[in-house]
Design a binder for these strands. Structure first.
Length: 112
DNA sequence: CCGTTGACTCTTT
DNA sequence: AAAAGAGCCAACG
């Protein structure tokens, strides 16, 4: 029984890691899935700690506008856009094109 | 323990 | 339509 001091972060990590390839989601969607109504900031905060985790595709997490708000937190800001484009997601002006088309909601995980 | 901060979002001006 | 303010909650100093 170890101390899960990262329980809050861990929840976010699991959701983010569950994002399918080529799909993206928003902080609010994750927060909502975790039961947080307006904890979107907490999700972002947790993502900041995701640097300790290697399997966290943080580039698949954007704000509700589909804008790469967190790109500046990557090793290189351009990294986020490159990763998204690598997955078939087109990013223009730091914003995901056809965002709704790539949007993935964690809630649909259990619905399936 | 209190105050500040933050990869957000909604509401109001 | 754009900008500013409020709300949210946890981590850090």
């Amino acid at each position: 029984m170890k101390k899960n001091k990262e329980n809050y972060f861990d929840l976010v990590y699991q959701v983010v890691k569950a994002i399918p390839w080529g799909q993206v989601t928003t902080y609010g969607a994750i927060a909502n899935y975790l039961g947080i109504k307006s904890g979107a900031r907490m999700v972002g905060y947790a993502m900041n700690a995701s640097h300790t985790q290697a399997d966290i595709p943080a580039h698949r997490v954007v704000n509700r506008n589909g804008i790469l708000t967190g790109k500046h937190h990557f090793k290189f800001p351009e990294q986020m856009q490159q990763l998204l484009e690598m997955e078939g997601i087109i990013v223009e002006n730091d914003k995901i094109l056809n965002f709704e088309n790539h949007f993935w909601d964690p809630n649909q995980l259990e619905l399936d």
